[in-house]
Design a protein around this nucleic acid. Structure first.
Lengths: 182, 182
DNA sequence: CTGCTATATGGTATATTGTAACATTATGAA
DNA sequence: TTCATAATGTTACAATATACCATATAGCAG
């Protein structure tokens, strides 16, 4: 097997600097095609273009940044068009919205098993304040704890999203050592 | 002891419809005075007025709503003045900002023990989509689980806020019964 | 294919949320 | 008092998001 295993499951915790991102993009795009086909949703050219733009990194991008990127590619759009596609993609579970920064990023769940995507499990994001990279983590462990709390309060949960801000490993390593005790 | 115990700790899970809210307001206001005094922070008239307005309920209020309320009370302000006070109050831990709705509400921690307030524990909010009431819950149980996840990812947490949306007990009860199987 | 209907997109204007930059006023310490 | 710092005022504007109505496109019934 000449194929390099080093990157397998590299996204299960946090996207590493050296992962093969073209895999992420193509996985998501092909999953999006299948998923929309299966669900009778229309992955139109506009929606596909916007999804591809978002999937180009593991950072979150704002709606107006997207507008600019697409304009650079020759697509002159009104904000509302972008927002409508963002709504569609978000409802399909293909992207997420970071509420702390009003920006959008590609879903990172493992799409090899179709059924694992787009469920209502609680969302759990690790957001690096330094480089902007986002890691999407399995939230099922948190789910039961949330259930404890909410059932005591007799609160009927609809949706939960946990945005954890901090610094990723690679940004921690590139901080000037010794700067801490200046 | 002629005092009515029924409301004691009534906010430990979720604010009930019948709790004595004047207690909440006065507790928070007097705590704010003490806390700012102790920390050398200036709880100015503007900041106090804004805090009181926010503390008037357990719902979140937007910055421009606040502007209107204060204008109705004769205070004509620029948005920036409100935002500056909101920043101050938030840094002091006296209010929180709901990131999912860009709005602000009063901190509900138990202020009888000064030291418990304004720590860096993870924030955990239950937000009723129906009536807008918010419950602030102890997040320390979640904290350790978050620690498990983030340490595996070698991610250095700075801040986390969990916004759980759904329906509170009292709104569940006032839903039309039988509507579920229509 | 034609025409119908529902969905998607375009175009224009505007609402909502939040900040920049600089002037003025209030507070607290020397 | 005088100075330095913090707080607020004033004006303008940036960034994010939606309302509203017109047009275009896809899928379907006939």
């Amino acid at each position: 097997m000449p194929h390099n295993h080093a990157h397998d499951h590299s996204l299960s915790l946090f996207p590493t600097d050296d992962h093969d991102h073209s895999d992420c993009t193509s996985n998501l795009m092909s999953y999006a095609e299948q998923f929309c086909e299966k669900k009778g949703l229309r992955l139109t050219k506009l929606r596909r273009d916007i999804l591809k733009e978002i999937a180009a990194s593991h950072k979150a991008i704002g709606a107006y940044q997207l507008l600019d990127s697409l304009a650079a590619n020759g697509k002159k759009l009104a904000p509302i068009s972008v927002y409508r596609s963002l709504d569609f993609l978000q409802e399909a579970g293909l992207i997420h919205r970071l509420e702390s920064t009003n920006s959008y990023f590609a879903c990172q769940r493992n799409f090899e098993d179709d059924e694992r995507a787009c469920t209502n499990e609680p969302l759990l994001f690790l957001i690096c304040d330094d480089c902007g990279t986002i890691g999407e983590v399995d939230g099922t462990a948190i789910e039961s704890l949330i259930g404890d709390v909410t059932s005591k309060a007799q609160f009927a949960v609809e949706r939960s999203q946990l945005e954890i801000r901090g610094m990723c490993l690679s940004c921690q390593q590139s901080e000037t050592p010794g700067a801490s005790h200046e």
